[in-house]
Design a binder for these strands. Structure first.
Lengths: 210, 210
DNA sequence: CTGGTTGGATAGTGTGAGTACCCAACACTA
DNA sequence: TAGTGTTGGGTACTCACACTATCCAACCAG
């Protein structure tokens, strides 16, 4: 299949397909001449993955490239998969020394062992700081609720990782790490909508809260 | 206090403070002359809120403006609070007719009553479609787990809404809806990190999954 | 041989979020 | 009251990002 058919099949404009090729998100097709290349079904699937990561996944092209590199080169340990998953978090500059206190304390309470220089830990500290800066300092009980829910999900997510092929596991991890985030956030909004409808039955709609 | 001191106090550059004034995120100070205005503590706090929404909250300036307008004009019902909270979701174009099937079925199983034209419902459908497009169709059991966790959080979040002042409630809802999202996502990542460390004890690190 | 397509490269577009600069109008100091 | 520096308000500029458009020679189908 040539690029125009690949574009039609995937619903992505030709110019954009070329862009993804340039950016290294999409592997090049098999060259059959100086101005001719052959693409396969795996390219169609890959484009689906790319669009999912860039759109609903909310990743930048640069981050998506890192993620896809991990998907492509699974000859490494599970360790690296973790690192890549964390790379998808928006970087939190270490120039702003966050107060890791409440974050660390929260993790300790839940028995989670996490590196002090884990990006996720710093991101958590930054998020808590943002809440305080916004005048809504989170209570420990609130954070415990969230940590408990996250812990349950994380536990079961990890239990779901296919152990057969490492390549399959990597792909599973990356895709689910990134693409279940919008699902979780949206479900939380919907839960707010439903809960507040029951709590504030004003008219037929009510408030959401978080 | 004048703009330069407001900038120092809040840690936001003067040019950026002016930008927020222009964009209507920050209410103007009290004019004391043609080239002089007075700002108060509430402006410092507001800047903290703005930075929290734009940074960790991940909102665009346009969305933040909508959210802040709701915070400023709480003379409305809880109904409108809900709508505003939903406005913070990235808009999902109705031009792409999503398959609402699995999403609706999920909500039905959990007894959540939600409007068919709710933005959150369409966002959920889009997220599920992205998972399928990425080659990782979510199982009903997986979605049930996420819905259960989200339901628990939503229930308790709504129970936490202060019922005293409507203005306070609105601010609480908006801030927590937006700013607890990064907390939840980060905790999930950390939970993955911890769970996978226990499941794949390779070296001292392991994989995350979602 | 001829017209349309392709791969590869270069350049341009539109948006979003600031940032820089300028100006006359101040306010404080000496 | 002259000098010095700051302000509000406006315009214009920058930078990053994710495409999008053009161009070109090579190519293939009719």
């Amino acid at each position: 299949m040539q690029i125009s058919k690949l574009a039609r099949r995937s619903g992505v404009p030709v110019a954009t397909v070329k862009f993804y090729l340039r950016e290294g998100l999409l592997p090049p097709g098999e060259l059959t001449g100086a101005t001719r290349a052959r693409y396969g079904e795996q390219h169609v699937e890959r484009l689906g993955l790319i669009r999912a990561l860039l759109g609903p996944g909310g990743l930048s092209v640069a981050t998506a490239r890192t993620v896809l590199e991990a998907v492509d080169a699974p000859a490494t340990s599970m360790h690296q998969v973790l690192g890549t998953a964390h790379c998808t978090l928006p970087a939190v500059g270490p120039d702003v020394p966050h107060d890791l206190g409440q974050a660390r304390e929260l993790l300790r309470r839940h028995g989670w062992r996490v590196d002090d220089d884990s990006p996720a830990l710093h991101a958590l500290a930054a998020a808590l700081e943002a809440l305080r800066a916004a005048g809504a300092p989170p209570s420990d009980e609130l954070l415990d609720r969230y940590a408990e829910a996250a812990g349950r999900l994380g536990e079961q997510d990890v239990a779901d990782v296919p152990t057969g092929s490492l390549a399959e596991a990597v792909r599973f991890v990356v895709v689910n790490t990134v693409l279940l985030e919008p699902v979780l956030l949206t479900l939380r909004r919907l839960a707010h909508e439903d809960a507040s409808r029951r709590r504030f039955p004003t008219g037929g709609d009510a408030a959401a809260a978080g």
